[in-house]
């Protein structure tokens, strides 16, 4: 009889995984979608009950705003794609810098990673929003930098820090004997990293990376705080334009449903990949 049950190990393992990827694991199930749907129907009911005689029906109201909200959602997605792309590329370099043989590079990368992981996402968002210029002039050509690009960069920073930890963790999870075997076959360090170690890491990195992406997508609503016209901002605008009591639950559950429909397959796939990897172990 072991002193502690498998539950203890599971908990510790998930805590360590969380620490490694910097993001908690999303656990989305169809039941969540069903619950959101119920909340939405309930919200519609409340709104209908509180409607004044001259108000249009709640569904008509939501339908009216849907194209605008969809445009906002497209913005959320665009921000998430670009932030993820930038954060991933930068994170890769930072991750490899963290295992560099040059102490200065290693320490610098370690500090950078900690700095951006410890800073709240919202503060980083503000940082980029306010400190990046609204336009740059290169060779006499003035290029405007719209707000949403700045927000994207602001979100890419924590993504970078988290990706770098995912990369470092995955590299260090490869047994040192693989490095030794490669060395004894006369591979140099660069070749070993890129041809032997890194390809083995990809499978391990994919689940936490996808989880991070789902978290990032949900975090794009933070951009509403700094005034980017994404879905949450537009929802608030729609609500104030309607100026009707009781619309709140219907609208917010509607927004959440959109996010659920988008994130659910990703979360599901992540869990599947993780399970497959765990079996292979």
């Amino acid at each position: 009889m072991p002193v502690l049950l498998p539950a203890a190990e599971r908990l510790l393992r998930s805590a360590m995984r969380e620490r490694a990827s910097g993001a908690r694991a999303l656990q989305l199930t169809p039941a969540h979608g069903a619950a959101l749907l119920v909340a939405f129907v309930l919200g519609c009911g409340i709104a209908q009950a509180q409607a004044r005689s001259y108000d249009p029906s709640i569904l008509a109201t939501i339908w009216k705003w849907t194209p605008l909200l969809a445009r906002g959602f497209a913005f959320n997605l665009a921000i998430s794609f670009i932030a993820m792309a930038i954060g991933t590329v930068a994170g890769f370099f930072l991750g490899f810098a963290q295992i560099s043989l040059f102490p200065a590079v290693k320490r610098g990368a370690w500090f950078t990673m900690h700095f951006f992981r410890n800073a709240p996402w919202l503060v980083l968002l503000f940082y980029c929003m306010f400190l990046l210029p609204f336009q740059v002039t290169v060779f006499g050509v003035t290029i405007p930098i719209p707000d949403w690009t700045k927000a994207t960069l602001g979100l890419a920073l924590p993504v970078m820090a988290n990706v770098s930890e995912i990369v470092r963790g995955a590299i260090q999870s490869i047994p040192t004997t693989q490095w030794e075997a490669a060395a004894s076959l006369a591979f140099n360090r660069r070749q070993t990293q890129w041809m032997i170690i890194f390809p083995q890491c990809i499978k391990r990195m994919l689940p936490p990376w996808m989880n991070l992406y789902a978290i990032l997508t949900m975090s794009t609503v933070l951009a509403s705080i700094v005034g980017v016209n994404e879905m949450m901002t537009l929802t608030q605008r729609a609500l104030s334009a309607e100026n009707r009591p009781g619309l709140l639950l219907a609208f917010y559950s509607y927004v959440l449903l959109w996010f659920f429909v988008y994130c659910y397959p990703i979360a599901r796939w992540t869990v599947r990949l993780e399970a497959r990897y765990a079996v292979r172990q």
Partner: peptide, 25 residues
């Protein structure tokens, strides 16, 4: 169980708005 499911899978910002604007309202 439903409390856990609702709060661990929605963005905290939405929760905050829900409490402040929704319940507060």
């Amino acid at each position: 169980h439903w409390y856990i499911q609702a709060f661990r899978n929605t963005p905290p910002l939405v929760q905050l708005y829900f409490f402040y604007f929704g319940l507060g309202g």
